[in-house]
Amino acid sequence: MNDTACSPAQVTVDLDAIAHNVRVLRERAGTDLMAVVKADGYGHGLVPSARAALAGGAVALGVAQPAEALALRAARVGAPVLCWLLTPAMDADALLAADVQLASSAPWSLDAIAQAARRAGRTAEVQLKADTGLARGGAFTLPVATAPDPRTDFEVLVRHAAALEAEGALRVVGVFSHFAYADAPEHPTVRAQQEAFADAVRLAERAGLRLQVRHLSNSAATLTTPAAAWDMVRPGLAVYGLSPVPEIASAADLGLRPAMRVTAQVSVTKRIPAGQGVSYGHTYAPERATTVVDVPIGYADGVPRHASNAGPVQLGGQRFAVSGRVCMDQFVVDVGDTPVEAGDEVVLFGAGDDGEPTAQEWAEAAGTISYEIVSRFGPRLPRRHVGEVGA
């Protein structure tokens, strides 16, 4: 199934573009960079993307789930790796044995990490995650009047970490947080979260924690809010060449090169009469006799069903749109009288250099964001990695 020669569609990833984007982002930030490679490298391939990012100058890698961190280590990727989505079911012993830095959002996770460190006879490296206003992961840095403890969650976390560090079970090497509105840099929460993060850092340092890294900026903040760079930036989407702020600037405007290209081969071509309904529910019918082609890739592969009757494609250098509903394994395109044969290439999206659609255009067609477009293409589509870096 992973043989590109046998597949009717494939994802091509330009690793040189990933390395280029990291260099651009590092230069823009003027500081160190952690490349976020979670979610299979945003659909680009976990290990190849990680290696390409490191080749471009990233000094660390960030992942969400423990399995992602362990997969990097299994592939002998030796750079520092931070993993930030932990649950009580995590295998802390395996993560420590793999030399993975773990993020803590609550005292229970510090205890679990410390217990694993004691069993291993080593000191675990942890980073504390501060919730500065996203109200998602992390320990809340703001006081809550109805809370039973007058201290903030983050202060409780810091005190607990300091006690375990004094014991020698762990060492706190960093504090980090995440923006809620970085893609709207003038939004008042952007400044408020920067101030809350500065308070969190001061609290940790006053508790005696010797921080090596403090990081807050995601892709959008890296590109629009230089004051938030601190010791390190932590971009994800922009590493893969897509703009996190498309309303402000395109990828090209930002000097980024989209790394992913999704193509398929026409499987069926036929003439149909005017008024003939196309695909499930007949939500599309041509006004005149026309040629329709079947493209063997669908929502089971990652093509968003919400892009029915809207998703743009390119055939023979011309632009067309999905005609009718996207199906599980295929969709149809009305190409008019354009000569098309089985086996002809259909470009769903790419860098846009040759007039092909982009991931951002697909996002707009589906009413979503480009993050979802690139990360949703699943393992049924083989990846072909090209470029000189990351091998």
Rank of each mutant, 00 (worst) to 15 (best):
V266L: 08
A366R: 01
A307N: 02
V326K: 03
A342F: 13
D253P: 09
A289F: 10
Y240G: 02
S323D: 06
P107V: 02
C6Q: 11
Q194W: 08
W108E: 10
P48D: 06
G281E: 04
T146Q: 14
W362V: 00
D344H: 00
D16C: 08
S7Y: 04
R76M: 11
E205S: 10
P244I: 01
G350I: 06
E361M: 08
Q314N: 10
P312G: 00
N21K: 08
E27G: 14
H215A: 01
E125C: 13
A251T: 09
G311A: 07
H187P: 01
H215I: 01
G168V: 03
E345F: 06
D253I: 13
R76E: 15
S323H: 07
D301T: 12
S267F: 09
P296H: 07
E287F: 08
R271N: 12
E195F: 13
G390N: 04
V335C: 10
D301E: 14
E125K: 14
V175L: 15
R118M: 07
G56F: 06
L209K: 06
A162S: 04
A50Y: 02
I113W: 01
Q127W: 08
R23Y: 12
S308T: 11
A139N: 02
G317E: 13
N218S: 15
A120F: 13
A229C: 09
A71T: 11
A162H: 01
Y42R: 02
D329W: 11
N309V: 06
V126R: 05
T141H: 05
L134F: 12
Q318G: 10
P185I: 03
V126S: 03
G311K: 00
P382K: 05
V158M: 05
A220K: 07
L203N: 02
A221N: 07
E361F: 02
R261S: 11
V77K: 04
H178W: 12
A192H: 05
P246N: 11
I18E: 03
V322C: 15
A55M: 09
D3V: 13
E186M: 11
P339F: 03
S177T: 08
F140Y: 15
V332K: 09
L381A: 14
R261H: 11
A139G: 06
Q193N: 09
Q276H: 14
V173A: 08
T132A: 06
K129Y: 12
G174H: 00
A252F: 14
Q101D: 13
A264W: 04
A366K: 01
R319N: 10
V233R: 01
A92H: 02
V292T: 13
D131R: 00
G298E: 11
G133M: 06
R380I: 10
S267W: 06
